[in-house]
């Protein structure tokens, strides 16, 4: 079993035009910086990106928007990006807005082998249009489908050669579910360790879900809204 790759470019070598990608992170928190940079270098086009947000103009998925590599975004909130807005208003970009919890659960269900589920979210709104509706326990629910991807790109704090991943603080966000949902999951890690160096009790994502892993580098970890406590 060899899941180790030398770097991001090697790990994404077989991702082609028109691929459907899940990209982990919440805003700029816990995004796979090395993998996004490698996609920009590779220059593949027509990508569908499933990601809660679309980055900012000059970082995160915003970098792939600048180079017009994204055809479609599937997200819950895309308000932080002016280039995104420009492309959307010009009809250059397709966007599918999905309630955040529904998006997270659609991804999680793919990793659990559940093809569809019912949720009350969006009942009575335009999100419900065209969806099967059923009543459970006196409450109306919509049927939502599991969401799969050709490749899931995630960033973890630590990972071992077997693909076991550990996340730090709020960087779990969508990344742990996406890691389980990808047909091929590629993980970049801040610290790549030997099997045994991670306590099995601490594993967030078991290695079975992760197909490729590499040591990331030069993490910028940009903060979107640095907000400080006013000290008296």
């Amino acid at each position: 079993m060899n899941k180790l790759f030398i770097d991001a470019d090697a790990a994404i070598a077989d991702i082609c035009d028109e691929a459907i990608l899940m990209v982990g992170g919440f805003g700029l928190n816990g995004i796979p910086e090395n993998l996004i940079a490698a996609l920009v270098r590779k220059g593949i086009k027509g990508l569908t990106c499933i990601s809660n947000n679309a980055g900012v103009d000059d970082f995160g998925l915003g970098l792939l928007l600048q180079t017009r590599q994204i055809k479609k975004m599937m997200s819950s909130y895309v308000g932080e990006n002016a280039e995104f807005e420009r492309q959307l208003l010009n009809g250059e970009l397709e966007v599918d807005l999905i309630p955040q919890g529904t998006l997270a659960t659609r991804i999680e269900m793919a990793g659990m082998g559940i093809p569809a589920f019912f949720t009350p979210t969006g009942y009575g709104t335009e999100i419900a249009i065209g969806k099967e509706i059923r009543e459970f326990n006196g409450k109306m629910h919509l049927m939502e489908l599991a969401l799969h991807a050709d490749f899931s790109l995630v960033k973890a704090w630590k990972g071992d050669h077997l693909g076991n991943l550990v996340f730090r603080k709020t960087t779990r966000n969508f990344s742990t579910s996406m890691a389980k949902a990808g047909n091929i999951t590629i993980a970049e890690v801040e610290e790549l360790v030997e099997p045994g160096a991670i306590d099995p009790d601490e594993v967030d994502v078991a290695g079975v879900y992760v197909h490729r892993i590499f040591q990331g580098k030069n993490y910028e970890k940009r903060i979107e809204r640095k907000t400080l406590r006013i000290q008296s």
């Binding site: 819950s76 909130y77 895309v78 807005l97 309630p99 955040q100 919890g101 529904t102």
Partner: peptide
């Protein structure tokens, strides 16, 4: 911009 988590 999107509904974020509000609908849920």
């Amino acid at each position: 911009k999107g509904m974020g988590g509000a609908m849920d």
